[in-house]
Design a binder for these strands. Structure first.
Length: 560
RNA sequence: GUCCUCGUAGUUCAACGGAUAGAACGGAGGUUUCCUAAACCUUAAAUUUCAGUUCGAUUCUGAACGGGGACACCA
């Protein structure tokens, strides 16, 4: 319907760019355009009369007349469109499990990289954020037609493993660690100890570097301990991903994701490509760096003075591999926003190498969780463990009355929704009440509303599809009008990589529905046609909430 | 010091340059004989400051103030 307006307006006005809005206030119609105001400015005319002229021409178009019962000029010269009732009713019948999906981006390929926890470090609520947002964005892209590959770029390589190996050898006991329920906890304790000791003894940092160099040179002992660290970590990761119902493409190490170590042997290709293009310069102390035009960004280090590589080197190798193997139209990195500069450097290098054009590389940076007092830090040991958050959430859901499996679904729903409902880039001050919120604009609210629709349908026994000649009340009309916009919201949400827009929509729809239900009778209504219509409305709203939650990666339970 | 971000009710967040700035939590008051009160209804409460661009600015530009982050051998 939006397309219909857009095409017709283009035809009438001969303008290239035309904006069609969905007004926040439904008083202003289902769609609205400010085209008359834009044109009036250019042509020096009165916007209001120009709008009236455009409306007169629109009224002459058959296709437009068929869809819209009213088109009017309002305010300073807005043109507002009101969809006809029969079109609204007809649209209601289109709602099914596929409603909202489109093939707009059919044939396009994208790789979405998210979660990316570090081996031997805690899976914290910070990683939770990347996991949840990344997964939802991947789902959104899929719903709008993209072929999506999901990658978990594990932090399984780097200097910290030198420190880790040194710490395990010096203070740890491998046999004991293996028997633990959550081995990572012990690894983190060792890691914290390393940094405490390093403050007293400067040589320790060098010891760490030495062991990492050994690892890069494939020293058997270094390699063996490193591999054990990965397996120890996956004891926890597997558990968390299963709980969260998140998984990665099986093309990548059978769903474990391609970690940085996967690219260790592919870095020489990148380095020689940079050399060929004469992009590498020697720095003050012998490291090799890429410098940027006019010092747009600080230089990016590719090789350290001791000859070992860095994160940039590995990321370049990663994208080279992706480019050669999948030729994607788009690669998204869902990584904390503290790495914004880092990614700008990376993308600039990739542009210099001629790998990607503007807009093909996206860093979706989310704000960090922090405490009121300051930053969370693995090194200092003040982090919130994912496990604990999950435990608390399930406890709260149980207290509110759900049982067994449902309490877990509700708990996860609350956690996910609290991350998704806000703009990803806002930072979050950690607060137990907020993260476990299950009232108002929350995951459980949507789940509750869905369960409510199921309950009504179950009690009603049968549903009759015929509901002609119903008088629609204002609450029903508001719902019908909202239903029309679901597919558009998916597209807007996906092209902006913004799951929060979908959250807003779903919450508003659910709100309208709950309001309607507390006000009007359904099961005891004497008019069969009205009952039938209301049941169909209920069914459709339930279906949309389910579809929406699905895209957000949240389960919709039949009962609560 | 340089760069990036953010600044909206008591709190946490919304609002492609649009129309009366919208929610949730918390506060005050109310609603359970169709479904499930994790709900619904009523109510008080906000755009950091100063300039500028515009028919129109929370949104864009500049400055100030304030929070957060990043800046060569971590990732």
């Amino acid at each position: 319907m939006k397309e219909e307006i857009l095409n017709t307006l283009k035809e009438i006005t001969k303008e290239e760019i035309i904006q069609i809005d969905i007004p926040e206030n439904t008083l202003f119609g289902d769609y609205s355009s400010n085209i008359a105001m834009i044109m009036a400015k250019k042509e020096g005319k009165n916007p209001y009369t120009l709008a009236e002229e455009i409306v007169a021409k629109l009224q002459g178009k058959k296709n437009i007349k068929l869809i819209f019962e009213k088109i009017e000029v309002a305010g300073a010269g807005f043109i507002n469109f009101y969809i006809a009732k029969d079109i609204l009713l007809n649209n209601l019948k289109k709602v099914d499990e596929k409603y909202g999906n489109s093939d707009l981006n059919k044939g396009k390929i994208t790789i979405v990289e998210y979660s990316s926890p570090n081996i031997a470090k805690p899976f914290t609520i910070g990683h939770l954020r990347s996991t949840i947002i990344g997964d939802a964005v991947a789902n959104l892209l899929e719903a709008s037609g993209w072929k999506v590959f999901r990658d978990n770029h594990l932090g399984d390589w780097g200097t910290q493993f030198g420190k880790m190996i040194y710490a395990i050898k010096t203070w740890g006991n491998e046999g004991k660690i293996s028997k633990l329920d959550n081995p990572v906890k012990e690894l983190v304790t060792l890691y914290v100890k390393f940094h405490e000791e390093a403050e007293k003894n400067i040589n320790l940092e060098d010891e760490g570097r030495k062991w990492f160099k050994k690892l890069e040179e494939a020293d058997p002992e270094a390699k063996r301990i490193w591999k054990r660290c990965i397996d120890w970590s996956f004891v926890e990761f597997d558990r968390i991903y299963k709980s969260l119902n998140v998984s990665f493409s099986k093309e990548f190490e059978n769903g474990r994701g391609l970690g940085e170590s996967f690219f260790v042997n592919r870095m020489s290709g990148v380095i020689s490509e940079l050399e060929e293009r004469k992009l590498l310069k020697i720095g003050k102390e012998g490291a090799k760096l890429v410098f940027f035009e006019k010092d747009k960004y600080p230089p990016a280090m590719i090789i350290k003075k001791d000859g070992t590589t860095l994160y940039h080197t590995r990321d370049l190798a990663t994208d080279k591999y992706r480019l050669e193997k999948y030729n994607p139209d788009l690669i998204i990195n869902e990584v904390g926003s503290e790495q914004t500069l880092y990614f700008r450097q990376l993308f600039e290098m990739e542009k210099l190498l001629g790998w990607f054009k503007e807009g093909q590389r996206i860093h979706l940076g989310h704000g960090l969780y922090r405490f009121k007092e300051g930053k969370m830090s693995t090194r200092k040991g003040n982090v919130i463990w994912m496990e604990d958050v999950l435990k608390e959430a399930i406890e709260k859901a149980t207290k509110l009355g759900s049982k067994g499996k449902i309490s877990k679904i509700v708990a996860i729903g609350a956690l996910k929704y609290n991350d998704l409902k806000r703009d990803p880039k806002t930072e979050i001050v950690f607060d137990w009440n907020e993260i476990l919120n299950m009232n108002g604009n929350s995951g459980p609210y949507l789940q509750y509303t869905f369960a409510r629709t199921r309950s009504v349908l179950f009690k009603s026994k049968s549903i009759n599809k015929v509901y002609d000649a119903v008088n629609i009340n204002s609450e029903e009309e508001a719902i019908l009008r909202a239903i029309v916009h679901f597919p558009e919201v998916i597209l807007i949400s996906s092209s902006n990589y913004a799951p929060n827009l979908l959250c807003n929509y779903l919450f508003e729809l659910a709100s309208k529905f709950n309001t309607f239900y507390n006000k009007h009778s359904i099961l005891t209504n004497e008019n069969e046609s009205v009952t039938s219509f209301r049941l169909n409305l209920t069914k459709s709203v339930g279906q949309i909430i389910k579809n929406g939650l699905n895209i957000l990666g949240i389960e919709a339970p039949e009962r609560m």
